[in-house]
Design a protein around this nucleic acid. Structure first.
Lengths: 194, 194
DNA sequence: TAATCTTACTAACAAACGTTAGTTAGTTTA
DNA sequence: TAAACTAACTAACGTTTGTTAGTAAGATTA
């Protein structure tokens, strides 16, 4: 019984440490020997658990990517107002960063080191996510819940404005995720001008 | 006379091509041989113009960083309202990206590959920039020009919401920088909610 | 118990890395 | 014209890279 358990958990440990190092030093800046040291085994031994360095990157990017997709779909199908949907999306982005900030960072910054075919796949996934969000904004405008803003600009401004959280958030600041979500939502929803 | 001219322009060509490659492939993902090929000389020949690969990164990061500082100071001392100041800052960030997007991208993404002491210097520069911007926001709130938003959140939301432009902007989209600045400003100033 | 599997190890490979040395042709300065 | 400088070249250096081969100890299965 424990065989598979142990295998999975060692593999997951490698992926988890890889996320940490990729975030800190970038994909190219992280060596398999650095990673092995963090895991506590020799570099060569890792190949009993993983296929290649590239596979680690793929696992991280697509693992997190799928989570984003699922959550967005989940939120979209609940029966709440459009502003509430956007607020829920903001909240879950923050939640993802708090829960697995390293992997989110890798998804955001290191996807360009995916190999050619995986990168195509990744871009398709990302495009679909953005399209989905754009549809929510468009529907919200149509319904009169949102101003007639430029949809592409609104979409990217919202997504992009969440990315600093990944760089900024640490528990030691003593800001709860709820406060953070509330403050960011307030600005995106109502603006800063008095 | 042309000696210095040629020297400067070849060095600048190297830096310019380096910005392009660092943006595309990251600092670690760019080799001196790749770069040399773009420049049209052998890798070893570049060392007649530059000291090291690190020096290229430093030149790019601090060159652009200084431009940001100067522009912000310039805007801050003009006698316009606080919302107008923020709008001017948004416009010049967009201008920087359009003018020298590759270098801006390197500043944003590859500063972490600066060596230890240069990184300290870089962070200090960045902190000062953020502090300066925070003061403008704080003053605007005090004067009643802005809502009583969380200053840190507003600061990073504004800065961060401009970063997608770097990834998104290309002339072929047919969006003028004026339109872009106007649309982004509209969202940050007034929000998306109707 | 015997056979198989798992997971670690050491050693090593071939390729790629940033950089230096040494040289040479052409240009500028004295 | 002679001396000095610039900027390119080829060759090579010592590391570091991701990865494979081969092996061995221990756990699991038949």
């Amino acid at each position: 019984m424990p065989i598979e358990k142990i295998k999975i958990s060692k593999r997951n440990l490698i992926i988890s440490e890889a996320s940490k190092l990729f975030k800190e030093r970038g994909f190219g800046g992280t060596t398999m020997r650095d990673l092995a040291e963090k895991v506590g085994i020799e570099a060569a031994s890792m190949y009993n658990h993983i296929r290649s360095k590239d596979e680690l990157l793929e696992e991280i990017c697509f693992g997190i990517g799928r989570k984003y997709d699922e959550q967005l779909t989940e939120i979209d199908k609940t029966k709440i107002s459009f502003p509430e949907k956007i607020e829920a999306i903001i909240a879950f982005h923050i939640q993802m960063i708090i829960e697995d900030g390293n992997a989110v960072s890798v998804l955001n910054n290191d996807w360009k080191f995916l190999n050619k075919e995986k990168m195509v796949e990744f871009k398709a996934m990302r495009n679909e996510y953005e399209k989905h969000l754009a549809e929510i904004i468009t529907a919200g405008i149509k319904e009169g819940a949102f101003k007639k803003v430029n949809v592409a600009v609104a979409l990217f401004t919202i997504l992009s404005s969440l990315r600093w959280v990944e760089l900024w958030y640490k528990p030691s600041r003593g800001v709860t995720k709820e406060d953070l979500a509330k403050d960011i939502s307030a600005i995106l929803m109502n603006g800063v001008k008095a």
